[in-house]
Design a binder for these strands. Structure first.
Lengths: 223, 223
DNA sequence: TAGATTGTTAATCGATTAACAATC
DNA sequence: TAGATTGTTAATCGATTAACAATC
């Protein structure tokens, strides 16, 4: 029954949830996971609002886009809410991820422990450099990027992280798209072109510093 | 004369530019820099809009928050526009940045070439591990974090990047704030508390993958 | 039951877009 | 001059907030 997702989409098949809401959903998840570590059983929209610096109404509205997870008079049970948000984000099961580009950043990503806890596992790595192809980095095999299509199918990989030099990014993206990848996390500081069916999120580290510089230079009176 | 910035602030001293505009400003900068590399002398709001997938009206309005950089009938001269945006972002001069936490990610950030081009230089690194204190990584000296206040003054450092384990993040942040740092780029996947005068931008890599997973799972009909 | 807190509607606020006179 | 494109105003659209009946 295709009705199960009906609230998230309108008649034209467009996602009806504001993009900002999805961003906050990840933040709610992170905070509630922290509350659980702190030993809390339940939370509520006021508490979550304070943690994220949004209003309580915003918290309730954000969550209500996806269903009814709260208990009037009680609040939200932490474990329940975590399960619900993971379900929405699609991270209740682990995603196999491929890493493309074994430079400095790529190696750091391979060693990064934070992915696993949130349901992501880098299961294979790819490069063009013959010196690294065939080796293992952090227990992850490095393959020739030419073998991408094959390995992707073999290992059920739907997402890739790309950490190649900017000049190589579009070529790699084309290969990745060709291999049937559905989502790309792009660390190269360039805009890449993909068919509309493929999702892209770009992370530009220099740009983040730039945004920080702006907020420091154009500081206003309050937070 | 405090009138020079008057357009960006209202009577209460609050920044009057939508946050989303500042984000796009960095994207305009990146695109125009690319256009220059491609040999283009001028661009216009229609072209920039297509590159960023926003309307031409949005481009003109965004830039107009900060002044008049365009030439009716001509468009925007690329070099001029780059200079103008760098001026707005505060990156027309180089920022000295300190890196805190020399783990996997920290080392990758030290080696990352992309910062320099956008006006950022990591001039010193800090850790608590005696084994790395006193060594150099990529030509950058690693200091004891206890020496932070001293070095920060010495080297004119106003921004730091923090890549320490989550459990250490808040302690490090407190030290950083104590040392008079004005802006923090936080790679630890936790919310940190700072006085309102200090700016923070958080980069949570697992969260980015999570956002990507969401867009893949809840794919709508169009881009 | 009384108190707390949700989910949801209506009102408010802010951001985007369309349109066009001014300019080169 | 005719054509192109800006900067800006007004109209539209979308997101946030306030308020409250429903619920535990």
């Amino acid at each position: 029954m295709s009705e199960s997702k009906s609230k998230l989409f309108n008649e034209e098949g467009d996602l009806v949830v504001p993009k900002a809401v999805v961003g906050r959903l990840s933040l709610y998840l992170r905070e509630v996971q922290q509350l659980i570590r702190d030993g809390k059983e339940t939370t509520n929209s006021t508490e979550l609002g304070k943690l994220l610096r949004v209003t309580d109404a915003q918290v309730r509205k954000d969550l209500a886009y996806f269903g009814q997870f709260g208990h009037p008079g009680v609040g939200y049970r932490c474990q329940e809410l975590v399960a619900a948000i993971k379900n929405i984000m699609g991270t209740n099961n682990t995603w196999n991820v491929a890493l493309i580009g074994i430079g400095n950043l790529g190696r750091a990503l391979l060693r990064y422990k934070g992915f696993h806890d949130q349901g992501f596992q880098i299961v294979s790595a790819f490069d063009v450099d013959e010196k690294v192809i065939g080796t293992q980095v952090e227990g992850v095999e490095v393959y020739d990027i030419q073998d991408l299509s094959e390995i992707v199918v073999e290992q059920g990989i739907r997402l890739v992280a790309i950490s190649v030099p900017s000049h190589a990014a579009q070529t790699v993206v084309d290969q990745v798209v060709q291999a049937g990848i559905e989502g790309i996390l792009n660390f190269a500081p360039v805009t890449i072109s993909v068919p509309s069916k493929v999702r892209v999120i770009g992370v530009d580290l220099a740009m983040e510093l730039e945004q920080l510089a702006f907020t420091v230079v154009n500081r206003d009176s309050k937070s």
